[in-house]
Amino acid sequence: MKVWIFFVLLVAGHAMAAPEPEVGTNPVQVEVGDFDEAIDVEEETVEDIVDNPCLNYHCKKGKVCEVDEGNTPMCVCQDPSTCPPADAEFEHVCGTDNKTYDSSCHFFATKCALEGTKKGHKLHLDYIGPCKYIETCLDSELNEFPLRMRDWLKNVLVTLYERDEDNNLLTEKQKLRVKKIYENEKRLQAGDHSLDLLAHDFEKNYNMYIFPVHWQFGQLDQHPVDGYLTHTELAPLRAPLIPMEHCTTRFFEECDSDSDKYIALEEWASCFGLKEQDVDKDLII
């Protein structure tokens, strides 16, 4: 977890501040388990499982496995005091209650204890790092955000394609689509481009951006795969970006145009400037 978060912060910061992704990985590759999903448990032998049913029992973040009097495993809220102490500042996380937690473990343990309450329902992981003052996102700045984000997504895919010999970073169908972008002589190379150039390139080479926008939606829509993005599903992308891109929260809030707490593919595509006729669920590979 420590390595992933640090790695993601470096990539997200470099890619959004200056759109030349030195590493070129995708922030959604941060372990989704740290944003509300089941804890991975190593496989054990049958004998081990019989002796301790919790060895192969999965609990969501913030919960741990215990056995009752009948030796039946069950998930209970973890005591925050049992979480390992943070070794570095980047392990801290900020909740939507504007409170800094020592680590994601401390955060989810606290959220679990509030389960079933109004406060617990509203509490989410906001971003990685200690809570800090986030500047107000102006309308003009909000309009600039998708320019950088689109270009970044395109460059992330191109870099994954370049490095994906036997790493299974992309599926074969994804490789075919990215190959067309990679080999296009008109493709704007990664670099520290002006907003005017990014806007011009989007207008002239619009088709190169259609698949990257769909691809990112598919990467996030995982728990469950239902064609909608929730706050939890957005967290792996939002959390590393908010401390460096102060328009991140407002951008995703306004993507939810009908304010139903879910971002549909059509809403997502519209936020990134795609035309309605180019929204294609078949591109979510």
Rank of each mutant, 00 (worst) to 15 (best):
I5R: 15
I5D: 05
I5M: 01
I5S: 07
F6R: 10
F7Q: 03
F7T: 14
F7R: 11
F7W: 02
F7E: 08
F7S: 04
V8W: 00
L9M: 06
L9T: 00
L10A: 05
L10I: 13
L10F: 08
L10Y: 03
L10C: 09
V11W: 00
V11N: 11
V11S: 14
V11I: 15
V11G: 04
A12N: 02
A12L: 01
G13K: 13
G13Y: 15
A15V: 11
A15W: 00
M16S: 05
M16R: 05
A17Q: 09
A17S: 14
A18D: 06
A18E: 06
E20Q: 11
E20R: 07
E20N: 08
P21N: 09
E22R: 10
G24E: 03
T25Y: 09
T25W: 09
N26Q: 06
N26W: 06
P27H: 00
P27E: 04
P27V: 02
P27Y: 01
V28M: 05
V28W: 02
V28A: 04
V28C: 07
V28T: 15
Q29N: 14
Q29Y: 11
Q29M: 12
Q29K: 08
V30L: 13
V30Y: 01
E31F: 09
V32C: 08
G33H: 07
G33D: 10
D34K: 05
D34T: 02
F35D: 03
D36W: 12
D36F: 13
D36E: 10
E37G: 05
A38K: 12
D40R: 13
D40G: 10
D40A: 10
E43Q: 11
E43I: 07
E44K: 07
E44S: 15
